[in-house]
Design a protein around this nucleic acid. Sequence first.
RNA 1: UUCAUUAGGUGAACCUC
Length: 421
Amino acid sequence: VATYTILIGAYCRKSRLDEACQLLSEMRGRGCVPNLVTYNVLVDSLCRTGKVDMAQELVTRMIGEGCPPDVVTFNALINGYCKAAKPDDARRLLKLMVTKGIQPDVVTYSTIISGLCKSGRVQEARELLDEMNRAGCSPNAFTYGAIVHGLCRLDKLQEAQEVLDRMEESGCVPDVVIYSSVIHALCKAGRLQDAQQLLRRMRGRRKAPDVVTYNAMIDGLCKLGRLHEALQMLEQMDGAGCAPDVVSYSIIVNGLCKSSKLEEARVLLEKMRGAGCNPDVVTYSSLVDGLSKLGRLDEAREVLEEMRRTGCAPNVVTYTAIIHGLCKAGRLDEAKDMLEVMSEAGCLPNLVSYNTMIDGLCNAGRIEEAESLVQAMKEKPGCAPNGVTCNIILEALLSSGRSKEAEQFMENHEPPTTMQT
RNA sequence: UUCAUUAGGUGAACCUC
């Protein structure tokens, strides 16, 4: 049983669920009865790939086969609901497991707390934290990490630092993840000084920064245009025994591209290869975007070719960057063709791709075409026009003095917004 | 049997800025 379970787990981790299920039937056929761990591996894997419904069915089957779920099974399901942004379903399962006599553990609570935080419901998360304390379950670093990260995402940096302070005072030393979470938020807010101070503080507490900590700092420096210091920090981490990874390099490649330092970005690309770190689709997409925005479309195409050679498939971001470049160069029809090309390559345009194309059409005064594309995108799953779409169309209509049509458009679409995401 | 299963942090593309 253990052997089969290990094999099934291996297939699951490679997202080869079909083969994992085949193995399950095979072991049954050989009279080898799957046990709780075998099922848990499968339940977890189904949840991770967004198939929580199938996971639920499997649990029903487990019960039927006399193998009732345990706390790990429930935690996997709860995690599935949280990842699917359904924290209320997760809470429902929490109640259910209690009625079945299964004690929730620190993993259960931490998972739900994280799920609530990811939905921006930090207040409820804090209430659940109190609830777990009352239930005699002590929070650990994961629990606090989820809360701190949730507060950071809501830009409640003050409160996040207070939780951090309280942990330090209560003798529960925050770990590298929690420090990094706050350092990241400080960097995003442009507060590099405070971030550096916190970095010193964690070092003072004998917590060594890891690659994620450094990457957050490096990104903060890049976003402020302090590329030289970013490169210095890359050296510094290496010297401290923390090898830069593909993310570290990609951050700086992106920073260089945003500052139009394409040649330096190229040099860094070579350097990372030399360090045994191969560029990935994000690294290449940054480069393609940088080249596209500068109108160097031939070179951008060469990068696409280079990606093919190295077996790195372009994704929707890569293609959208190209579309942007084509639009900017006034090559609108080629940009439109690119929407087809990417679809044929198995990469469906998303909301951003459409918005990019719509903006290009508007800027070229082809507003009617833009509007018909807005209608067309509504048919595509996950591509419902958003606030950005509206801003693009409204601005185009208003700046060409067509305020009547703008009003009409506003009536027929979601309220315009200045929000991102 | 369970060191066979579950939870937190970092990078790229669209409008305005």
